[in-house]
C-alpha cells in the first residue's frame, strides 16, 4: 500500500483516548491471544483514521501480536513451505528489516537465516496494508458494524476480500474481524475455530475503551 495511505499510530487522529497507549494495546492483544481457549495464530488491531486531504476513512496498522502455530515449527524443521527463491526473498527482507531495527552495524543474526513461514510472512506483509472506505474484510466490518467469522479454506477462498483469499493461500483456516471502538480487531488461525460467544465478549471487553 502507498505509504501516504498508511497512517502512523496517533491517538489524536484516531480519536483514541490518550491513556490508550501502544503499550496497553500490545498488552490487550497479548491477553486476548494467550488467554484464549483456542489456538489463534495472531491478532491485529486495525486502527481507523480519516485522510483529511481525501476525506477517506482508512483502517491502517495499529498493532499486532503474533503467537505462531505448530505449522511454524514443522515447516521450519522441514523447510518445505515455499520455493527456494521465495525463501531467499523473505530472508533478505527480514535481514533488511532487522538492520532497520537493530542498526546496520549490528552483528549477523542466525535467526534471520531460518525458514520464514507462510504465516509469519502473512503477518509481516499485513503491516504494509490498509483498507480504504470499507474495503476488504476489516473495512466491511468497520463500515457495517457487523463482525465476520470465516472458517475453512474453501470459505476464505470465496470471500469478497483479497486479504481473506491471501490468508488461505498462506495456510490460515479461520479469520475473524470484530468492529471495536476506533477500529477492527482481526484474529487468524491455521486451525478450524468456530464462532465463540466467549471470544466475542472477550474482544469487546478488552477493546471497549469506554469501560
Amino acid at each position: 500500500a502507498p505509504e501516504a495511505h498508511v497512517p502512523a499510530f496517533s491517538s489524536a487522529s484516531a480519536g483514541v483516548p490518550e491513556y490508550f497507549t501502544q503499550e496497553s494495546l500490545q498488552q490487550r492483544l497479548h491477553m486476548l491471544i494467550e488467554g484464549a481457549r483456542d489456538s489463534w495464530t495472531y491478532a491485529i488491531f486495525w486502527q481507523s483514521s480519516v485522510d483529511v486531504g481525501f476525506g477517506a476513512s482508512i483502517l491502517g496498522w495499529g498493532d499486532g501480536y503474533y503467537k505462531g502455530c505448530e505449522e511454524d515449527k514443522r515447516r521450519r524443521r522441514n523447510a518445505t513451505s515455499s520455493s527456494v527463491a521465495e525463501q531467499e526473498h523473505r530472508k533478505r527482507v527480514l535481514r533488511e528489516l532487522n538492520s532497520l531495527i537493530s542498526g546496520s552495524g549490528s552483528s549477523p543474526d542466525s535467526a534471520m537465516e531460518e525458514e520464514v513461514t507462510d504465516t509469519e510472512w502473512f503477518f509481516l506483509v499485513s503491516m504494509t496494508q490498509s483498507f480504504v472506505n470499507g474495503s476488504g474484510l476489516p473495512g466491511q466490518s468497520f463500515l457495517t458494524g457487523a463482525p465476520s467469522w470465516i472458517v475453512g479454506k474453501d470459505r476464505l477462498s470465496i470471500a469478497p476480500c483479497d486479504r481473506a483469499k491471501q490468508a488461505q493461500v498462506f495456510g490460515l483456516q479461520s479469520m475473524v474481524c470484530v468492529p471495536v471502538e476506533s477500529g477492527v480487531l482481526e484474529l487468524g488461525s491455521t486451525e478450524l475455530i468456530f464462532h465463540s460467544a466467549d471470544m466475542m465478549n472477550q474482544v469487546k471487553a478488552l477493546f471497549n475503551f469506554n469501560s
Binding site: 498508511v6 498493532d63 515449527k73 532487522n98 535467526a111 531460518e114 503477518f123 503491516m127
Partner: peptide, 26 residues
C-alpha cells in the same frame, strides 16, 4: 528509516524479538 511510522517499527521490533525466541525453541 524515518518514513516508517513508529507504531509499525515498534510492532516489527517486537515481532523480530519474539521470532528469535521461537526459532531458538524449535
Amino acid at each position: 528509516d524515518a518514513a516508517v511510522p513508529q507504531a509499525r517499527k515498534a510492532s516489527l521490533a517486537r515481532f523480530l524479538e519474539k521470532r528469535k525466541e521461537r526459532v531458538s525453541n524449535t
